[in-house]
Amino acid sequence: MPDECYRRHRDVAAVEDEGRWYVAHLPDGPIHCLEGSAAVIWEELPTSTEAAAGRADLVLLVAARAGVHPDAVDGDVADFVARLASLGLLETVSRPGR
């Protein structure tokens, strides 16, 4: 089964300011502000020039940052990733199942 991988969209500008990330799909925007856990997940997402990360990898990274069990963040990461993709801020890449 193909595994979905994610990375920041190449047409997205991003600025970090006092722990918040401000991101926008170019050229029109709007500007989205990511704070708290949203900012953490964004920071763990590979950039557009890096290899995309699978959901399981992302969950592990975010859980490690938050100091919680991966099961505690699995659903939230999935929701957030879907939300980012719907806003055009994230690129979804399919890779063959392992």
């Binding site: 709007p30 500007i31 989205h32 704070e35 856990s37 953490v40 997940i41 939230d76 929701d79 939300r83």
Partner: peptide, 13 residues
């Protein structure tokens, strides 16, 4: 408009 996604707990959005 600006959307703010903030966590309910450590990792919720």
């Amino acid at each position: 408009p600006v959307v703010v996604a903030s966590g309910r707990n450590n990792a919720a959005v």
